[in-house]
C-alpha cells in the first residue's frame, strides 16, 4: 500500500487560483489550520471556500484570497461573530452563499453521493431562498405532492481535514467527542488531504481508540501530513483545547490594519515550524 506522507506545502501545491476548497472541522473546532497557513504562504487567489466556517474563512478574508464563501455559519464559538469575515461582508469584499446549517450538510451529502441535489424542508418560507436565487424547489412525485427545497450538491475540488491520528496510508482517527462532517468533505471532493497530530502505525491506530473513531479510510485521502498543533488555535480534543488567548489576539486584528499586518508577519508569513515556535513561546 502506498505511503502517502507529504508536507502541507506539497499538498497545497495542487491548489490553483479560482479553485473550490472544502475545509473540515466546525467553527473554531478541529480546523485544518496548518493547511490554511500553507494556503496563505502559497498566496493562491480567488478561492471559493465551502466550510462550517471559523478562522479558516476569517484568515482567507483578511489575506484577500477568498473570492466566495459558502457556509452554514462563520463563528469563532467563544467569540460568536468571526470579525474578519464580518468586516469582509460589511465592506462587500467577498461573495457569500449563506445556507441553513442543515441545508449545508445535505449539500455535502448530495456531493458525496454524486447526486445533483437532496430535498429538505429547511429553507422553505425563509429568505434563504431569496438570497440564493440559484436554489430551486422540487415537487414530490408521490401523492402528497409536497414542495421541498432541492439543495444542490456542494462539490469541491480539494478538501482539507485535520484528525487526531492517522497512519501513513491515509486511515484517520477522530478521538474527540464529535466527528463533525470531515468524511463527507473528503467524499464531496475530487481530492482530499488530511493532516493529523501524529502519524502512527496501523496497529497503533486501531489500538488507539474504538473502531467508530476510525472516521476516515484510505480511499478518501490522497495525502497525509503530520502536523502537531496543526489545528491551533482551534480546539483539537483530547490533544489540546482552543487557545482562547491567541484567538482573542487574532480577533482583535480585525479592528486595525497595522495590527493585522503585524499578526500576519509574525504568524503567517513564516514556516509552520516557526509558527509553532512563536505560539508556544
Amino acid at each position: 500500500m502506498r505511503d502517502k506522507r507529504m508536507t502541507a506545502d506539497e499538498a497545497v501545491s495542487e491548489v490553483t487560483d479560482g479553485m473550490t476548497i472544502g475545509i473540515g472541522g466546525w467553527g473554531s473546532r478541529r480546523k485544518p489550520m496548518s493547511f490554511v497557513r500553507a494556503l496563505v504562504r502559497k498566496g493562491v487567489k480567488d478561492l471559493t471556500v465551502v466550510s462550517y466556517g471559523g478562522p479558516d474563512i476569517g484568515i482567507l478574508c483578511a489575506t484577500g484570497q477568498l473570492k466566495k464563501a459558502v457556509y452554514g455559519f462563520v463563528s469563532l464559538d467563544s467569540i460568536p461573530l468571526e470579525p474578519h469575515f464580518r468586516k469582509a461582508r460589511q465592506q462587500g469584499t467577498i461573495e457569500a452563499v449563506e445556507l441553513d446549517e442543515g441545508m449545508f450538510l445535505l449539500g455535502l451529502r448530495a456531493a458525496a453521493q454524486r447526486l445533483p441535489f437532496l430535498p429538505t424542508r429547511a429553507g422553505l418560507g425563509s429568505d434563504v431562498l431569496k438570497i440564493n436565487p440559484q436554489l430551486k424547489t422540487v415537487k414530490s412525485p408521490y401523492a402528497d405532492g409536497e414542495e421541498l427545497v432541492a439543495v444542490p450538491a456542494l462539490n469541491v475540488d480539494i478538501a482539507f481535514i485535520h484528525m487526531n491520528r492517522a497512519d501513513a496510508q491515509g486511515n484517520g482517527q477522530s478521538l474527540g467527542r464529535d466527528p463533525y462532517f470531515d468524511n463527507l468533505f473528503c467524499m464531496a471532493a475530487n481530492k482530499a488531504f488530511m493532516s493529523c497530530e501524529k502519524i502512527v502505525s496501523t496497529d497503533e491506530l486501531v489500538a488507539g481508540g474504538p473502531l467508530q473513531s476510525l472516521l476516515i479510510n484510505r480511499m478518501m485521502v490522497s495525502g497525509v501530513v503530520e502536523a502537531p498543533g496543526g489545528a491551533h488555535f482551534t480546539e483539537c480534543p483530547p490533544d489540546y483545547p482552543r487557545d482562547e488567548a491567541f484567538q482573542r489576539e487574532y480577533a482583535k486584528t480585525a479592528k486595525d490594519d497595522d495590527a493585522w499586518s503585524a499578526f500576519r508577519a509574525k504568524y503567517l508569513d513564516v514556516s509552520e515550524a516557526d509558527y509553532q515556535k512563536a505560539v508556544s513561546s
Binding site: 455559519f73 462563520v74 449563506e98 445556507l99 441553513d100 441545508m103 429547511a122 418560507g125 425563509s126
Partner: peptide
C-alpha cells in the same frame, strides 16, 4: 450570526 439553523428549526 447569519441564518444559522433558524430556517430548518422553524419549519
Amino acid at each position: 450570526l447569519g441564518v444559522r439553523g433558524a430556517p430548518g428549526n422553524t419549519i
